[in-house]
Design a protein around this nucleic acid. Sequence first.
DNA 1: CTGTTTTCTTGCATAGTGTGCAACATTTGC
DNA 2: GCAAATGTTGCACACTATGCAAGAAAACAG
Lengths: 196, 196
Amino acid sequence: MTVSLRERRRRQTAREIQIATLELALQQGLENVTTEEIAASAGVSTRTFFNYYANKEAAAVGTPPPFQEEDKQALRDGAGAPADDIKRFLDQYMKALAEDEPILRMMGPVMRSNEKARGILEGFLVLERDELTECLGNRVSDRQTAAALAAGVTGAIGRAIQLWNRDPDLSLDAALDTVWKGLIAASQLLATPQDP
Amino acid sequence: MTVSLRERRRRQTAREIQIATLELALQQGLENVTTEEIAASAGVSTRTFFNYYANKEAAAVGTPPPFQEEDKQALRDGAGAPADDIKRFLDQYMKALAEDEPILRMMGPVMRSNEKARGILEGFLVLERDELTECLGNRVSDRQTAAALAAGVTGAIGRAIQLWNRDPDLSLDAALDTVWKGLIAASQLLATPQDP
DNA sequence: CTGTTTTCTTGCATAGTGTGCAACATTTGC
DNA sequence: GCAAATGTTGCACACTATGCAAGAAAACAG
């Protein structure tokens, strides 16, 4: 493989710290957990904790999966209806998210209650959204149109995760389908000039 | 008036602390400003600073204008095309934002660079968006459709402020119009099934 | 395999954050 | 004017986060 022993260990430790953070946060609330507790629970020193994450909120967020280059490329030079390409893009991302369902499950409550963690995740989302805007800008000429589409995409991802977190029996894919139908219906409402 | 002397002073102090925070943050970056500096600059003790805001990031965000009850009511029982009612709602909110243009101008750079402040503002937005979802739920039957519309509204507000912050010659209203056109165009793209 | 280089871990010192508490000051309402 | 309510402040204290330097572990070259 392309990853050295060091790199594998590093990822492993980062992951262990994140899981320790989320588990403790679920029990006591992230505010009431000290970095010392997290470090001890993950088997490293407090100082090493800060070698991996700048603070406990960043440890809770970890490294969310970014959009894949190939999927963005497909979006840039897609030929069909934009709605279809975007839906495919979303399906691909849901597949990536599904790789880490247990962590995603734990993150929901933390993001809802912790402002700083939410801000960190939101910052990540802003960057990804800007990437998307650039991709879609290749197709729709008007920058604000591309920005609105990109916001529609990231918003749909967020609502899908939220729905999936509320309803344990729903798969991520199914949640996205529900959200997607709502987005299309909303678009039709906004697109309709009048109904005389 | 309906506000006591105490209440007026309180608001005045809160505002002075916010302005002191934003001015210092613009000069040095919020990370490099201490609560002690802010408190001194606003003419209160460090301890009093924390009586007004839980931390410096919250001081930077202050108390953004919430959606007005009357505007939300107009959205709930509007009779025309949803798009028109929503546009009216947005225009109303822009008017409220314009009341505090100087503060809004200073907030942009801070929100872009500070994760915690962004999280706090985002938390405020989530609450307002949920309110909107409830309002729109009165009209569109499907909850996800209402949620998508509400996300479209708050997203448009954010992009309008961002556009206005980048281009000093643009009014808030004008920025919103540009963003709105983009949102409608994006909706038409998503609403269109195919183009055979 | 061995010595060298690079990277990782850790403890310690230190500046800054945020809260509880208690004393004192100011406003309010009667 | 006086009593109750509210606001301000200093102090003590636990927690956060960073720089620095010493030592441990992995990577690499010969």
